[in-house]
Write a protein that binds this DNA or RNA. Structure first.
Lengths: 110, 110
DNA sequence: GCCCTAGATGTCGAATCTGACATAAGATGC
DNA sequence: GCATCTTATGTCAGATTCGACATCTAGGGC
């Protein structure tokens, strides 16, 4: 799968403002990646605010440490559904989730 | 699957403000359903604004009429990912998606 | 009545996502 | 150095979601 690889590279780093142009991501693909990145960083932020390890969060979610790691890395193998469910489980509201999605996603801040 | 049935009933109607309590949905399950309902109605709204049929939208998405119908019905077999991708494909922005998620979801308006 | 269009619903094989496990890599304390 | 804790990454069998198709209902024009 071509798209998965591109997405993985994309999420892995470097692009700052708009996620387009690094490799030929269409606008919607880019937007989708940005949605996922926002959720991914929200998961990490909420977890660390609660001072939980990935393993603890995994248990709380009925999942595993590795899946949490993949969520936070916005791995292409994790669905938006899973990330949203995780945030809700950590006590986020629908509005919180929405704000995570619309927030800009700066990465690799210098 | 127990949960799926409840979710189907839930989405099918009647509940107005909070989706809790109709049957023992936990708070997060209820919130997740509300997220899906918001996206589902957004898909319908965007599609009809564009005066497209479900079949046309299905083709635009590389999918089918029946899947579009299920999306708009917030069928448990459709993922948030698919609904978000559909909205983005119809030209919605990340912020638009976020607002659909946080909007209240009145249904069956008298 | 019959046809046509739009939408709803059920089913199925294929594709994707999931939890679990193993294992590696980084960081910290000794 | 080496334990220990935490996070990252790869893999895989089982679960979920996918597009597609068939089928049904509702409505309108004739």
């Amino acid at each position: 799968m071509e798209k998965r690889k591109r997405q993985r590279l994309e999420s892995a780093g470097w692009v700052v403002g708009s996620t387009t142009d690094f490799l030929g991501l269409s606008d919607e693909e880019a937007a989708l990646v940005e949605v996922k990145l926002g959720l991914a960083s929200a998961v990490r932020k909420q977890r660390s605010r609660r001072r939980m390890t990935q393993a603890q969060l995994g248990r709380l979610l009925g999942s595993s440490q590795s899946r949490v790691a993949k969520m936070e890395a916005a791995d292409p193998s994790v669905s938006i559904d899973l990330m949203v469910r995780s945030l809700l489980r950590m006590g986020a509201s629908r509005k919180d989730v929405a704000s995570y999605i619309s927030m800009p996603t700066p990465r690799r801040a210098a």
